[in-house]
């Protein structure tokens, strides 16, 4: 185990009934790295991410974030990580500003900092709009702002650009690059190979609960003699339909 790893995952296994959702996953993410987890639906990405974040206790193995185990729940550790969950997890009937103020206060952060974060994701003029009246892109930006409001060292983003139009996606990419440029470690799951290719320093391709291949996108493309990361993905995971 290297001391400078932001995330160390060793031998995770998780079974749901007959399904071995995660089947011996190990990986490491360095400080300041942008790490992508790719895989078709049902590959075990979400479960892996949930275990790493500390939402679940694995049947076997362990995940260490910033040198601390992610299970059992450790509030001091949670104060140092930021999480954007799939779909918008917002409080009901609150405006954008009230949402981010609520999250800020839960982390002991001033409202001024929260307003600055809202400004940073370009939502100042939407501050008084209720979250359910925001567009998909605005909602995602608000969700990322809420994940970053307490200035976390480690950020988890679960499919942050799903359902967005190309403009909103590019916009969000800039934001995510900026987050990494500040020295944060970012872990991202996505279905978009172009996104992984432009943003990630390294990607892990998963299927059937296992990691099939890890490396920088360009290296994987070269090794497999593929034309793009998408081809790498299809070569590794096959072409049949997934659930």
């Amino acid at each position: 185990m290297t001391t400078d790893a932001a995330i160390t995952v060793e031998g995770l296994r998780q079974r749901y009934g007959d399904v071995q959702a995660v089947d011996g996953v190990s990986f490491e993410v360095s400080h300041g790295e942008f790490y992508g987890i790719l895989g078709p639906n049902g590959a075990g990405k979400t479960t892996t991410l949930e275990i790493v974040e500390g939402l679940r206790r694995p049947d076997e193995g362990r995940a260490t974030l910033l040198g601390k185990p992610s299970w059992p729940r450790d509030k001091k550790l949670l104060a140092r990580i930021g999480v954007q969950l799939q779909a918008s997890s917002f409080f009901e009937r609150l405006t954008a500003r009230e949402q981010i103020h609520t999250f800020a206060e839960l982390y002991g952060i001033s409202r001024k900092r929260a307003d600055a974060m809202l400004e940073r994701v370009g939502l100042t003029d939407k501050a008084d709009v209720r979250q359910d009246k925001l567009s998909g892109g605005q909602e995602q930006r608000l969700s990322i702002a809420c994940a970053l409001v307490h200035d976390p060292e480690l950020v988890f983003l679960d499919e942050p650009t799903t359902g967005l139009d190309p403009q909103a996606r590019r916009n969000l990419w800039d934001l995510l690059r900026g987050i990494q440029a500040e020295g944060r470690t970012v872990v991202l799951t996505t279905h978009y190979m172009d996104e992984a290719e432009t943003l990630c320093d390294r990607v892990a391709v998963m299927d059937h609960g296992r990691i099939l291949r890890v490396g920088p996108p360009a290296e994987l493309i070269g090794e497999l003699g593929a034309a793009s990361l998408e081809d790498v993905f299809l070569q590794l995971t096959g072409r049949e339909y997934r659930e």
Binding site: K75, L78, A79, R80, F91, L94, T102, Y107, G108
Partner: peptide, 20 residues
């Protein structure tokens, strides 16, 4: 020292629930 006191969380969550 980071992270709020229990009282702050309680007040914040109460306000979010009450507004909702």
């Amino acid at each position: 020292a980071r992270g709020p006191s229990g009282a702050t969380s309680l007040r914040t969550l109460s306000r979010a629930m009450a507004l909702g």
